[in-house]
Simulated scan of single mutants.
Amino acid sequence: MRKLFLDVFDNYTEFYNNPAENINIKKTIKYDIPYEMNTILQLDPKKYLITGSYGVGNPTETPWIAIFDRSITVSAQHGFYVVILFRKDMQGCYLSLNQGTTYLRNKFKGYKPVQKMKEVATKLENSLSFHTVNGLISEINLASIQQNARAYEAANIQAKFYARNAFPSNEELAVDVQDMLENLDKIKNFIGIRTLDQVIDDLIYQEEINDVKFQEDVLISLPAKTIQAPNPVPNKTMSSPNTEKYLRDSKIAKEALILAEYKCEADPTHLTFVSPLTGENFVEAHHLIPISFQNDFKYSLDVPGNIISLCPNCHREIHHGVNENKAKMIRTFYEKRKEILRVFGINEELNNIFKMYRLSFFSIKNSDFL
């Protein structure tokens, strides 16, 4: 297998620049690698389809080899699948759990489809207890500005990088692929009997709907009086078929807003309107460390020390803004809260919090200069 991948690494750029000069690389991508992977993985051909692509019409800068679960999709245009994506510079490739970008681009045309791809990826990763793949990363860089490459980067759910000079053995690759296919099975179970449209709408909109209801509950709640010590993990509830989520307590959020004096902690001069329910500036509660990561923590994340008071605009920005601004906000809040977080038994490095928001190293470094 390594020899076939090295053939692509060594010769694909020449083929891309002169497609008529090296047609053998087409055979390597389209037939030889899929055949060898079938031999190594011993997957049931009735359940799985392995195929490769170097582009339709003109060659693509980033060829790929995909493994489709036939019950989900047999196309890279829609659904979810496992794929090996080559970087444009051929310095390596990614084993990626990914999603069909054409479908999402069409579904959200005119409504920031690339951002929607990232949202789906983030919410799937946060909602499902994925099997841990050794060396896992959440961001990929295909070193290409082509539209398809940018979409694959945004749609990546989780990935592992293989450097050109350190491509794994057949046995190592098989283990990684099997682990990734287990996570694809978790997505299939999450989908259940729902259509793809229903699944995507639930992922994109249901959390927003739930948060609106939560913020309304915060307004009418009496504040809690949380002990400044490690608190027990909150209870869970079913949020969708086959998925549980941790409950947020509106009383604790109300306590955090009062402690912040109903000011936006991103900028205290951000005034909105006076809420008739509180008689104070209207703000919303945001968990700095998302409660969806509660499984990774021994003590509750639903505590005042982890809840930030934000005006609605800043609240939207920390969820949907450009990465550099999000990174700057998270860094600022972390520096303000890291000591009180430790009082509540929450010890987490800033870099790990950045990863929870799926922020890249480039975004994080750029935020230093904002």
Rank of each mutant, 00 (worst) to 15 (best):
L173C: 00
T195V: 04
Y152N: 05
A155S: 11
L173D: 00
L142F: 11
L142Y: 07
P168W: 07
P168A: 09
E182V: 12
E171L: 04
A166D: 13
A149I: 11
Q146E: 12
E153Y: 01
A154T: 11
I191L: 08
E171D: 07
N148W: 06
A149C: 09
A174N: 07
A174G: 01
I140E: 03
K188M: 06
Q147T: 15
A166N: 15
F161N: 05
R164G: 07
Q147N: 15
I193S: 14
E182T: 12
L181C: 04
G192S: 06
V175I: 14
I191Y: 00
I193L: 14
A166C: 06
K188S: 11
K186G: 00
L173W: 00
N189Y: 05
F161L: 14
S144E: 08
F161H: 10
E153M: 02
Q178C: 02
A159R: 03
E182Q: 12
Y152M: 05
I191V: 11
N141C: 11
E172Q: 14
I191H: 01
D176T: 02
Y162P: 05
N156M: 02
M180S: 12
K186I: 07
I145K: 09
E171N: 03
R150Q: 15
A149K: 08
L142N: 10
I140K: 03
I145N: 11
R150P: 05
F167Q: 04
R194F: 08
D185Q: 05
I157D: 08
E153K: 00
A159M: 05
E171G: 00
A163F: 05
A151P: 01
Q158M: 15
N141M: 09
I193W: 05
Q178P: 01
I187K: 02
N141D: 15
A155W: 06
V175Q: 10
N189H: 09
S169I: 08
D179M: 13
F167R: 08
N189V: 09
K188H: 08
D179N: 15
N141F: 13
R194S: 12
I157C: 08
F167V: 08
G192I: 06
P168N: 03
R150W: 06
N170H: 07
I187W: 02
I191T: 09
I145Y: 06
P168G: 09
Q178F: 08
R164P: 01
R194N: 10
I145P: 00
S169T: 15
Q158P: 02
A151F: 00
Q146P: 02
I140T: 13
S169D: 10
F190C: 14
A155G: 12
V175W: 02
N141Q: 12
N148D: 14
S169G: 11
R164T: 13
A163T: 04
A155N: 04
E153W: 00
S144Y: 08
N170G: 14
T195C: 03
L181Q: 03
N141W: 08
S144M: 13
M180N: 03
Y162K: 03
I145Q: 08
K160S: 01
V175F: 05
E153A: 00
A151T: 01
D185F: 01
N183E: 02
Y162N: 06
